[in-house]
Design a protein around this nucleic acid. Structure first.
Lengths: 339, 339
DNA sequence: AACGCTTATGAAATCGGTTTCTGACATCTG
DNA sequence: CAGATGTCAGAAACCGATTTCATAAGCGTT
């Protein structure tokens, strides 16, 4: 491996000078810089990021910490991978790389926090269950960090305007004449609270009495539990005419179930999703959903994180709302008139 | 940060001894190991992976290099994320973390190879376009590596038995009476060649004359081009009764297009996909497809890579075929009888 | 000529580990 | 009991960078 020492010899300067050229110290005259740069190019110099990290105390790696609970895994949900994709593009352009930090699952390897420190990540992006013990350890640490769908005060969180858009989507159903609406919401979290509130407020503003039977909880992305819940709904004495699912995947699973039960969507039952994934638009019927702006979210997460890393002292948690878009599709239609 | 020097002082031994305890040198008696380990636990010692990498010359990071061409991005395809997921689990259990290495897109940052060397990755997992110049640089290097859907002789490749399963799926259509079948295959690659061969052989064995009109090329995951190609097929004077798509996503996009054209699937046109993603089974009609065993593929990639890293000298490229499963769904049906 | 003031450079310590090599001490052997 | 052997521990060099601090050279002042 070519090191700055090799460069130094060839360029007839000291290693310190080479290092200073690399880091663009103002005390180095242009002439020297040019000379050293020429030799570096000529010798195909590749800096050792590890050595740099050791002496600087921080690497150019951004840790990605994702944990959704035991059964669900990092890469499986398209919403997150879309956000990651946009995030990655943004941080790459600043020369940071993404390091997927692993969690202590087997008991042998370190915790999230330990792995972050050990790998001296410059910052971290958090996804998933913020109540998890290992997550909390990171959240309470002084590692610069941001998180998607976080609304607390310990770090910067980026999220969609869930309240507004959920309300809007609910209104859309109400406008279509639906009165028996059930919202199957995701696991308990800040995000879920806002969505539920938007749902309730839309119902209230329409002057419809709210009932607990309008709400149900399920786990994201678990197709089986979605099927079960949906079947139970269909079997109710007074079944809903519209079902609102927590995300596009479960909406699609729901529609499948509805069809298996011999009913049609939207003719018999209207369905909504959430997230606005491309596949939901390819699906037929195209989902009525809320499209989260994953590009903007990923970019914003990256920008906020880099701000935090660049100025660790003055870093302060922010709450950043990104505008989502209500996407009316063909999975919702007018309520079936009772003959 | 607690270092081995702090441990050494507290445990009343030398730093070398601490290091030897960490690395489990046989010359250290159990008693000393126990003592040092106790102090490490007590002081909450977290090793510095960067320092370790510097002195060892190799990190515990595995580089993930993915490049599919300018328009498609790493995380967008569920097949890859599923494989990654399984791969990650396997390498995590050996204490490796995943580092997403970036490519020189802006001209400012380094190439794949430079970034791998700079970050001293222990090994690399390659996805995508192996003809890309930066990819080739890595492939020709002596970095331990494996790749998915690679069938060359420069590194170990893992892939499904595309030939067999494509043939089987084609036969399935032939058995249903289809004679006018079009296979829209992916971009030119070894994998594609085998699939095409499987397709052709099934056709030949059925005694049907092969025509170039039975084959079409498209780019993976580009919904628009899938729509266009599908529309063109439907407008043919003598349109096909079955269309085989290169993956599940395009099959679903194809079915949408078919419906938009006022036709039904499978009643009017049968459709097949490839990959066997969960969403394809939620889709209705459930896709007839070939399910790639992403769990096994990811695990095998990890195992082969680790083998290579553990014994760099004797490493030799292998070709590993993983058995896929033909998954008959309801997107294929008997050919419509001509009245 | 002696002084101060820039400007450019390099020596050396440092980051936190690993590893080689030497030597102290204990134990075995004849 | 001398000499050979084996066990354990630590000193020191090293990995490849950064950064502080000292100093040499050049230049203008007085």
């Amino acid at each position: 491996m070519v090191t700055i020492y090799d460069i130094a010899v060839k360029a007839k300067v000291s290693p310190s000078t080479v290092s200073k050229v690399i880091n663009d110290y103002p005390s180095i005259p242009e002439e020297t810089k040019a000379k050293v740069n020429r030799v570096m190019k000529q010798m195909n110099y590749i800096p050792d990021a590890g050595a740099k990290a050791l002496s600087k105390g921080s690497s150019y790696n951004i840790g990605v910490l994702a944990y959704f609970g035991t059964n669900i895994s990092t890469f499986r949900h398209a919403l997150f991978t879309e956000i990651l994709d946009s995030f990655q593009q943004e941080v790459n352009s600043r020369n940071y790389d993404l390091l997927f930090v692993s969690k202590n699952l087997t008991g042998r390897d370190g915790t999230f926090y330990q792995n972050c420190v050990s790998r001296s990540v410059a910052g971290a992006l958090l996804f998933g269950d913020f109540e998890d013990e290992e997550m909390k350890e990171v959240i309470d640490s002084n590692i610069p960090k941001v998180a998607f769908d976080y609304m607390g005060d310990k770090m910067t969180g980026v999220y969609s305007d869930n309240y507004q858009k959920m309300k809007k989507m609910t209104k859309h159903l109400l406008d279509l004449g639906h009165r028996k609406i059930v919202f199957i919401h995701g696991e308990d979290s800040d995000i879920t609270k806002y969505r539920v509130q938007g749902f309730k407020d839309a119902i209230a503003e329409a002057g419809i009495p709210f009932s607990d039977r309008m709400l149900l909880e399920t786990l994201y992305t678990d197709a089986d539990s979605v099927k079960n819940i949906t079947m139970n709904l269909l079997r109710r004495a007074n079944p809903p005419t519209a079902i609102m699912y927590p995300d596009d995947y479960s909406a699609m699973a729901g529609i499948s179930t509805i069809r298996e039960a011999g009913l049609r969507c939207p003719d018999d039952i209207s369905v909504t999703g959430f997230d606005g994934l491309p596949i939901g638009q390819t699906f037929s019927p195209a989902l009525t959903t809320v499209k989260q702006d994953t590009d903007a979210i990923g970019r914003l997460l990256a920008q906020k994180l880099i701000e935090n890393m660049d100025d660790k002292e003055n870093a302060h948690p922010e709450l950043c709302e990104v505008r989502a878009t209500f996407l009316p599709g063909s999975s919702t239609g007018p309520v079936k008139s009772i003959i």
